[in-house]
Design a protein around this nucleic acid. Structure first.
Lengths: 137, 137
DNA sequence: GTACAAGTTCAAGTCAACTTGAGGTCAAGA
DNA sequence: TCTTGACCTCAAGTTGACTTGAACTTGTAC
């Protein structure tokens, strides 16, 4: 586990599905780190792939690159304090609950017989939830 | 329910928490509609507030304004087909599962005793999940 | 030893989602 | 009447997250 090969940017690009330009951009922003150079060419530790996966996960979760950088510091050391992490977890949890309602609302909408969504009681519940949810984000 | 007052942009702004500029922008993009003008001034039906809440919900869920516009057509009529809605719901469901893992990972990280996250088995599980998740987004 | 694919830097461009600013309109109150 | 204040339009600016392009360098293959 964690076989630490050394990869050039093209290999990382292929393995991660990200273009090399993005990898350079991430490095510039301090999200990933190259372990050195061979000539001009960057070399990455293969562990960068896990880090990239984590970044993708965070992005998918709706965090900005800056927030992600804060969440998982480069060296993997706690940098960020526990209460902040807990707060992030709470945020995510809230998002999950909202998404659940949205998902159910969409599913219902897909099978709803009412002539217009506005006349459908389930859709109206979604609306009421949306109204309540808004503001405490 | 659905007391259809007619509101000016400032009132909508106050009630929704969005700046008037955003409301104009949304109207331009076809996300909301004003019901008319009094002189130059836009008038909105108070139902726009529910629509704005729905837009906020969709945004929070990570959808672009264009996607949201497609999801909930202006007139509330089904415009978008059922299988597409179901697919959206599936996407959201996938996101929810990923977020759950992320949340648990963060929570664990907050209380973890290991000197560095990389040495913590729970964090490593998060990593493995992230690696698996990446690519099938 | 030379060609070439794969890198490199740095500046500029793009796209979504807004925001800001300049200059104009209008209804209501002092 | 005149001055606010709330609204208007339209063009340009901003931020985040990248992408693209031009010009340059290198390690490997022939």
């Amino acid at each position: 586990m964690m076989r630490t090969g050394v990869l050039d940017i093209g290999t990382v690009a292929k393995a991660s599905g990200l273009p090399a330009s993005t990898l350079r951009y991430y490095e510039e922003k301090g999200l990933i780190r190259s372990v050195g150079r061979r000539g001009l060419k960057r070399l990455f530790d293969s562990a960068v792939l896990e880090r990239l996966a984590l970044i993708a996960l965070g992005q998918h979760a709706g965090f900005s690159l800056a927030e992600i950088a804060a969440m998982f510091s480069l060296d993997g050391r706690p940098q960020i304090d526990r209460s902040q992490l807990m707060a992030k977890a709470e945020d995510i949890d809230k998002t999950i609950r909202q998404l659940s309602v949205l998902r159910d609302g969409l599913r219902h909408t897909a099978v709803c017989k009412a002539p217009s969504h506005m006349e459908c009681p389930t859709f109206q519940r979604l609306l009421r939830f949306a109204v309540k949810a808004r503001g405490r984000n």
